[in-house]
């Protein structure tokens, strides 16, 4: 999982002053703009695949939130679904008991997940990576068990029924083809992405990277590790909770599966596919993961899990960076031309 961000060719020049460095990093590059334009363009281009696209966006947002703690602060987590599930159940309960306006529900669910994340973050401050892995896993398992047992609130193993979500901002109703759902999820994800991008390029984001590299050294240059980890863990929990809320609101159903161990593992797999530590890993990984799952399960309904595992093993053995360079080699002249044409 030690994925390095792709090298940035224009960074190799003479050292910049600190303020110039901070200002140069957040500049938008053309692949990023292209990525988001095509994401919004799919609203018109693929009108009958909006349900799948909606799932991809939600998984991407969830993986992005894991990337915030894994790729930037270096906290390994096997229980990130805990916050996804809290957000999903919070959104479901809010919609069931009166507050059916999605945006309000989204914000409140994010806040609920953030609160749980804040409490859980104090448990991951000490110990090794193995300890952190097990503590995060334990929190997710306990929440899963709670949701299972408190069936008069959550519906238990039957899932939460009777979730009825109103129109967004009182105006846009959810439709059967999932168009509203996709536009809503994509807009939310885009806004949250902008915020995450702003945060990771700020001095705070840089200090997180310092913490990831060497916590002791970061502490000696005056970065308070614990407070920053609490802050970023809470932020990631808010993001995961909002992803969960999006899932509830667009499917109008919550089941125990939102807190499943497999969901936490899926998010890690997505980051393995897409790479961590540059924000797009979660989004690109989610696209690859869902498309792979979709095509493989259509091709071989019985054995698609085998092929998933097989492809993942190959991917890790060869290494994503090597695979990408090999695949990109035929297009190298084009890329160079595009890079050269930048102002």
């Amino acid at each position: 999982m030690s994925a390095n961000p792709p090298p940035m060719p224009q960074m190799a020049a003479e050292p910049l002053s600190p303020s110039a460095f901070l200002r140069a990093k957040p500049a938008w590059r053309w692949p990023e703009i292209l990525f988001w334009i095509s994401a919004f363009g799919l609203i018109l281009l693929l009108p009958n695949r909006h349900l799948l696209l909606n799932e991809i966006v939600i998984l991407g947002l969830f993986a992005l939130s894991l990337d915030l703690i894994l790729g930037y602060a270096g906290i390994v987590s096997l229980g990130h679904a805990a916050f996804f599930g809290v957000g999903a159940y919070a959104a479901g309960l809010l919609a069931k008991h009166g507050i059916s306006e999605p945006v309000t529900g989204l914000v409140l669910s994010g806040a609920a997940a953030g609160l749980v994340g804040l409490l859980a973050s104090f448990m991951i401050l000490r110990g090794t990576d193995l300890t952190r892995l097990m503590v995060t896993l334990g929190v997710a398992l306990i929440l899963h068990e709670l949701a299972n047992r408190l069936d008069w609130i959550t519906g238990g193993a039957d899932g939460l029924l009777g979730v009825s979500v109103g129109p967004i901002l009182g105006r846009f109703d959810f439709d059967f083809a999932g168009t509203t759902a996709y536009v809503y999820s994509l807009t939310t994800a885009f806004l949250l992405f902008l915020l995450a991008r702003r945060i990771v390029h700020s001095p705070f984001g840089l200090s997180l990277k310092a913490l990831k590299d060497n916590r002791l050294r970061a502490a000696t240059i005056g970065i308070a590790p614990n407070r920053r980890i609490v802050a970023v863990y809470t932020l990631a929990a808010v993001y995961a909770g909002m992803a969960g809320a999006l899932l509830t609101q667009t499917t109008q159903f919550v089941s125990l599966e939102v807190l499943d161990f497999a969901r936490s593992a899926d998010a890690l797999l997505v980051l393995v596919i897409g790479g961590s530590g540059y924000l797009y890993g979660g989004l690109i990984g989610a696209i690859a993961f869902k498309l792979m799952k979709d095509t493989l399960s259509a091709m071989t309904p019985a054995y698609w899990i085998f092929w998933m595992g097989f492809i993942l093993v190959i991917l890790v053995l060869i290494g994503r960076d090597r695979l990408v360079t090999e695949l990109a080699r035929p297009f190298a002249p084009l890329l160079r031309w595009l890079a050269g044409s930048r102002p």
Partner: peptide
């Protein structure tokens, strides 16, 4: 049920992370 073993693990790891 299963709460006991999870709760014990969390408690132990709170007090002795190693």
């Amino acid at each position: 049920g299963a709460f006991i073993i999870y709760a014990m693990m969390l408690c132990v790891l709170m007090i002795r992370p190693q």
